[in-house]
Design a protein around this nucleic acid. Sequence first.
DNA 1: CGTGCTGTTGAGGACGATCAATGACGGTGG
DNA 2: CCACCGTCATTGATCGTCCTCAACAGCACG
Lengths: 261, 261
Amino acid sequence: MDGLLPANMAALADAGVLRLFRRKLNSLGFQGESELRCLLDKTRLRRSVPRGKDIVGAGDTPRHLTVLLAGVACLYETLESGGRQIYDFYYPGDFCDLHRYVKLEAVAEPAVRALTDCSIGTIDYRDLDRAIERHRKLALVLWRATMLESSTLRERLINVSQRPALERVSHLLCEQLHRRRAIGIESGVVPLTQIDLADAAGLSVVHINRVFQDLRKLGVISATSRTIEVVNRERLAEIANFDSRYLTMPAALSNWDISAE
Amino acid sequence: MDGLLPANMAALADAGVLRLFRRKLNSLGFQGESELRCLLDKTRLRRSVPRGKDIVGAGDTPRHLTVLLAGVACLYETLESGGRQIYDFYYPGDFCDLHRYVKLEAVAEPAVRALTDCSIGTIDYRDLDRAIERHRKLALVLWRATMLESSTLRERLINVSQRPALERVSHLLCEQLHRRRAIGIESGVVPLTQIDLADAAGLSVVHINRVFQDLRKLGVISATSRTIEVVNRERLAEIANFDSRYLTMPAALSNWDISAE
DNA sequence: CGTGCTGTTGAGGACGATCAATGACGGTGG
DNA sequence: CCACCGTCATTGATCGTCCTCAACAGCACG
């Protein structure tokens, strides 16, 4: 499968690959060099997964946690009807399979697929267990990551159940832009296909396409490039009625900060 | 607001009120008398909340965790449009506001409302912190509770985004029956209004009503009683294509069982 | 005996699905 | 270099599900 790089991660940690993972942990309230090291040093770099392949399959028994380091992936499930439901998108720094660590059993679980070429890192469950034992706060941090996913899921539910297509698609695009910006990507390009968006929005591809044409007429996305590129964020956010709060974790971590030391 | 009963909970714990809470903790993998005591003894019984009132509001700063002890509640949010989106239902034993414990800040959070008259219990954050410190496994247990909610949320998303109305409503009903059975209620009565179901299904009340008439014609729900009563579960499950797995947690808790002691 | 909430019914219309076909692009192999 | 193929994007036409508006009936409550 994927080759293991025998890298000295401690050395690489700040070099770049794990930069976004570190940032993510920070945003979840995990700070302090020794704490971070405890996790970052145990993160093994795995080679890239090509677009369209599963990063986390439905079947295999997991022995390690997976972290997305580069690219875009999605949490999804294949339906009896043959369709696909995309639950959430993952960006560099995001955990891909916390649900397996916590659940420990494969009961029709969702899978994770690379939507662009991806790089992933892994952390052995044993290393993770030890890290949590050492720094109790880490359990809370990961729990919070799950909570954040829940929050996104709720927003997705509203999106699908309440908003009309134009607003719905705009909302999804806003979210992508926001999340990309959070990891330092300022460009308006959203590296997804209309198909991906259809599966996330619960709309047919045909209809997504029509919505895109409207968005182009409104001057919100580029009319020339084949890839999706937002050229007017403000307008897009207006259309979507976008409020990014559901994506953000508050900085404070009052109680466990105390009990952790 | 709600009066505090100065009860000796240790004595009451097995008497009945906390029976379902205990069962819930068990199902999440929290076992052993001393562990359970640690949490159950700290659970304060609060008086009941009448139907229609919020159990957990959006605004207030939380100091304790809330556990539903009797009745049915829902996690919901009020939309700009004036509508209501129901994310999840809560049954006796369920935690109502884990999101606040973990998040600790009110950023447009969802609220919890009593859909029937409810009784609730509370656990002070300080007591909870201490309990977690004593039994590390508890952090995992609560994390798992969150994960289970996530799982339900994903199922809800599929329900809303993929299934046609009849199937969708049936699926919701199946879930309620299943969850009620899990707490020992065998009756086919689902104590919700059509309005509640509409808000959970993302359908208009009018349409829900029409679906109900179909279900009655199909002999699935009672045609006589005003309250919703399922009289043919098998048929209902068929229509809904119901697979209860998303509601169940695997029993095993392999890794943390070890690191906990 | 009103007042409110929930449930019920009818009519008309909109939004989005489906089916089907075609176009554009990139990659592959001859 | 070109022919071929697969994936993704685009377009048109038709149809169905579900929404909205509006009115009314039943029941519970004070």
